[in-house]
Design a protein around this nucleic acid. Structure first.
Lengths: 410, 410
DNA sequence: CGTCTTATTTCACGGCTTGATTTAACTCGC
DNA sequence: GCGAGTTAAATCAAGCCGTGAAATAAGACG
């Protein structure tokens, strides 16, 4: 059974020899070291389950390579002090790129994910792939120069893009709302990239922006410690990242998580995806503002963000059209969240995106109540619903975790 | 970050030593041997990526333990013939239990999943947990006697039950429609179980019936070869199994996959779960028959299965109430499937359950069309929608794969 | 019957983790 | 100020493991 995929999986598997064992253990140790306060070898041994001897060996290697460093020590009641270890933030850099609707943002981080340089380019001349690629390459050069970082110190570049990202056989991006159809982004970028640490071309990792933002929340935001989570992102539209066992679930071979286009009301409003009744036809900022006008409200001035903020503010007055609309939207969103809980039983649901936070800040209790009504009791009870904690740089930050993740694998 | 779960994961991880390496490789080899035609050591070496020497070593062990056997040989152009190997079906047995709404079914299988004995008990005296436990234990004794199997040859017992199954800290089953609330099924069964091969108590593995059925389809039915699939089960109600990376995704700590209670129409029909607008309020057999009457149809005679079969038959005549109802139901179901595709991007969606097959047999094309309309093009294109291929014993069969899976892990 | 071909096993080697043992680096009481 | 006690880290020998190379097995073919 499953002959094809089974065999492929087995052949691709890289853990047959005793050498791979070392790589695995090294990775386990490195991850423990990275995610957490400085710790002694002894504590690392207890945490990872590796023997003290092995920890000593691996740590020696890591220190020789400059990846781990000793950082102070702490007394032990009458014994030899514990030497604290941590990952050397200066060992290398990672670059994160956020390709957004209105701008491209490039950030350079050290290994501790401290921002070292940043570049921002408006996409006022449209979303032409060539234009975007030029900006990205320009930005990479710029942040390397600004941050004073040798290209050879860069472990890789992670990129978060809108739309559906297929990884095989090569990276292809489709973004309907962006005007991108089967764009071979990796190939386009590859040519202009400087060489990485090993002299080979810099690793290039591309994923959906919702997924990279989800990664950021998972690693550094509200998702810390969760291994099964769903990060819902509500901006103009609705996206999500489904985190399964610690990393985004990308389904068969494409980035999944198109939460915005799950049906909420069969035969409901038309959605910009061409279909009807999608969640996004009700819950995104665009849909909310349209629905407000449809419900008799006066069009709100300003750009989407200003208008939506105003709508939510007005909704504080009971009985108004705004209040009815926002209440209904919250109920819809909560119902859909309840559906996610039933279907996937995540430990945590994290709500973000600028519009999501605008709603969540005021209506989190109502959202939880609605989700509770629409999910089975035991499943709801083992899920928590929270808000994103990271700011607008989260997409780039999360994109930068892509090469970091690979680095931590050894 | 993620300190708690991260640490737990690392501590529980069982692959630090060089000995664990052997266990892993043995498992890889055993799985290759199990899932597939008889093959030579050489072919196994190519498939698994292990060196011929290692394959030889591991196979020797497996043969000494009686797990693998040689079965004929095949000529090679002028060289030493290849000796074909396979798993010895007679090495041991597994037991699968299907706890259904109306009956408990217990089956004994050999390692090749050939049925060796079977027992069936109607649950006419209700669903009292004590009653069910008694029947299960009775059935296990019965099939062991019938099949002439030594209890010591049994690798484990897998059980598929309705409702939500929490695995930690101990197995607890909640089945609202079944009248079970926090039933500690494992504990109740544990006492009456005979000892397994090692003299220790027989391993007992419990999961949601939809999940076990999903496992069966995945291993032996329409799911063969898929690593990301969703098996939708439509009977009286609606359930599902979400297969991720080859095994059911059980979310945080409970069996997920409650597809039936994802919202389809906010403020829609009342569902038996107490909520409104669930998929199950429209698509299960119970809901369909109710809606038929609500739409003006005459109540159909006979039990649910007879009645629904009649409804689907009548729907063949265009313009009838039955036709309208079935068409609408198919559209709803297709829309929900489209939502699953968008959210999870599975390689395959497999529709089953007696009511699901009744619909699927006649309306698969319409279902596919509806799903296509409700999902993004690229995601739909990489998903196939099929019907279950296994019969009514699939739940028990899948339950029996639970201990088998563990066995294959070594 | 010897040669050729192919499949499988044997064997020595390099690597790995580990428990036991040493060594290092302190504290504390006197 | 110094030796005993305590705790952390490094070292060492032992036991396994997978692998490539070489040896062996088992047939085909001329």
């Amino acid at each position: 059974m499953g002959a094809n995929s089974e065999r492929r999986t087995m052949a691709e598997r890289k853990r047959g020899t005793v050498r791979d064992l070392r790589r695995d253990n090294r990775s386990v140790l490195l991850r423990a070291l990275y995610f957490g306060d400085p710790r002694s070898r002894q504590e690392l041994s207890a945490e990872t389950g590796l023997s003290p001897a092995s920890v000593s060996n691996v740590v020696r290697d890591l220190m020789n390579e400059g990846i781990a460093v000793e950082v102070g020590s702490v007394d032990s009641d009458g014994g030899r002090p514990r030497v604290l270890l941590r990952v050397n933030p200066a060992y290398g850099h990672v670059i994160g790129v956020d390709v957004g609707e209105t701008r491209v943002q490039i950030e350079l981080f050290d290994l501790a994910m401290a921002e070292r340089a940043k570049a921002d380019y408006p996409l006022d001349r449209g979303h032409d792939p060539g234009e975007v690629v030029t900006r990205i390459l320009e930005g990479i050069d710029a942040v390397l120069a600004d941050g004073g970082a040798d290209p050879a110190s860069v472990l890789g570049v992670g990129i978060g893009v809108p739309g559906v990202v297929r990884q095989r056989p090569e990276v292809i991006v489709d973004a309907q709302t962006f005007g991108w159809s089967s764009v071979p982004l990796e190939r386009l970028l590859r040519e202009g990239l400087p060489d990485g640490p090993t002299g080979t071309p810099l690793p290039l990792l591309i994923d959906n922006g919702a997924n990279t933002m989800g990664r950021a929340e998972l690693w550094f935001g509200s998702g810390r410690g969760a291994r099964n989570a769903i990060i819902g992102l509500i901006g103009s539209g609705v996206g999500s990242a489904v985190i399964r066992d610690g990393s985004p679930d990308n389904g068969a071979d494409a980035s999944a998580g198109e939460w915005g286009h799950t049906p909420l009301i069969v035969d409901g409003r038309r959605c910009r995806c061409g279909n009807v009744g999608c969640l996004e036809a009700y819950v995104g900022a665009e849909a909310m503002l349209e629905r407000y006008v449809e419900a008799g409200g006066d069009p709100l001035p300003g750009d989407q963000e200003t208008a939506l903020a105003r709508l939510v503010l007005d909704a504080a007055t009971p009985g108004t059209t705004a209040a009815r609309l926002v209440d209904e939207t919250v109920a819809f969103l909560g119902a859909s969240i309840g559906g996610l809980i039933n279907l996937l039983a995540p430990e945590r649901i994290i709500l973000g995106g600028w519009a999501g936070l605008l709603l969540g800040d005021r209506y989190l209790a109502e959202l939880r109540a609605a989700a509770s009504r629409h999910s089975l009791r035991h499943l709801y009870a083992s899920t928590s619903i929270e808000l994103c904690r990271l700011g607008p740089d989260a997409v780039a930050l999360g994109a930068a975790t892509l090469p970091l993740d690979r680095f931590l694998d050894g």
